[in-house]
């Protein structure tokens, strides 16, 4: 499937900012399920440097800009040819050992409730069959956390999302990571894009899901918000321990301003007409 992506992030500051620095992982890499046909990240007058592929295989670059600034816009546009690999990540070059992704963070820290849900969900799946177990955990997260935009915040933890029973794709991903850790399965946060269809959720802004390391298969994507594995509608950008570590844009500003962010993402099938959703 050929997908066209346009992702615009506009940062607005309520007072002029002296300097802005961001770390971007906004360029997807070629894998068996995605081939990048064209890609461009436009950061206007900012200076770009310090670019490299990190140990997890993600292309990283640094963007810096001197103020005074009142707004800053990052526009990502590209074309990707995708193929359904049933969520299995193949052909992705990386060096980080999977066992490093057993490490929990503040956002994915285990609690008795998370452990309890993991135990309940994996009941009846044999410990050796980690693929069955991963599917079971993914379903359990889908059932336990309803997709309700605006119900959680950027800093919401897995434990809080489970307790509230509501969240968005980032919460689903982090709860699933925590459950996987409870079962000693390495798991990580993945950010990317999803072409919206009538029955999918989470495509309004950049999407997120989890990857679990499954014996014999390697990394496999699980989108608990949609209770499925990524297919040809998905484009993978980058990964990390959690939503903060796996964010495609991490930035700080020099100045006492409040920052507001407006994100719009459009993922269209080639030939589909332009209709843009706002996040």
């Amino acid at each position: 499937m050929k997908l066209r992506i346009r992702h615009v992030s506009t940062f607005a500051f309520d007072a002029p900012v002296k300097r802005l620095v961001q770390s971007h992982r906004l360029s997807p890499t070629d894998t068996a399920s995605q081939r990048i046909m064209a890609w461009n990240v436009d950061t206007g007058p900012a200076s770009i440097g310090a670019a490299f592929r990190d140990g997890a295989g993600d292309w990283t670059q640094t963007v810096s800009l001197r103020g005074p600034l009142e707004t800053f816009t990052v526009t990502v546009e590209g074309e990707v040819e995708t193929q359904d690999q049933s969520g299995v990540l193949r052909g992705h070059r990386e060096h980080v050992p999977p066992s490093a992704y057993l490490t929990s963070t503040r956002r994915t820290a285990l609690t008795a409730e998370l452990r309890g849900l993991a135990a309940e969900a994996s009941e009846g799946t044999a410990p050796g069959r980690s693929l069955d177990r991963a599917h079971a955990l993914c379903r359990a997260v889908h059932d336990a956390v309803a997709y309700v935009p605006g119900s959680t915040e950027a800093a919401t933890t897995a434990s809080e999302a489970l307790e509230g029973g509501r969240g968005v794709c980032q919460d689903h991903a982090q709860v699933l990571i925590a459950l996987a850790h409870a079962c000693e399965i390495p798991a990580r946060y993945v950010a990317g894009y999803l072409m919206s269809t009538e029955d999918s959720v989470g495509a309004e802004a950049s999407h997120a899901w989890a990857e679990l390391h499954v014996d014999g298969l390697g990394w496999v994507g699980f989108d608990a918000a949609n209770a499925c594995c990524p297919d040809a509608r998905y484009v993978r950008l980058c990964s990390g321990y959690d939503a903060a570590d796996g964010a495609p844009i991490r930035g700080v500003i020099d100045g006492a301003a409040e920052e507001s962010l407006d994100v719009s993402v459009a993922v269209l099938r080639d030939g589909q007409s332009q209709s843009q959703s706002q996040g």
Partner: peptide, 22 residues
């Protein structure tokens, strides 16, 4: 703060990217 603790005021934003790119 762009690589490790995002609340750090002691470090240099973007330092790790410069380090990792030599």
């Amino acid at each position: 703060p762009l690589c490790f603790r995002s609340d750090s005021m002691l470090g240099v934003p973007g330092l790790m990217n410069v380090y990792r790119s030599g």
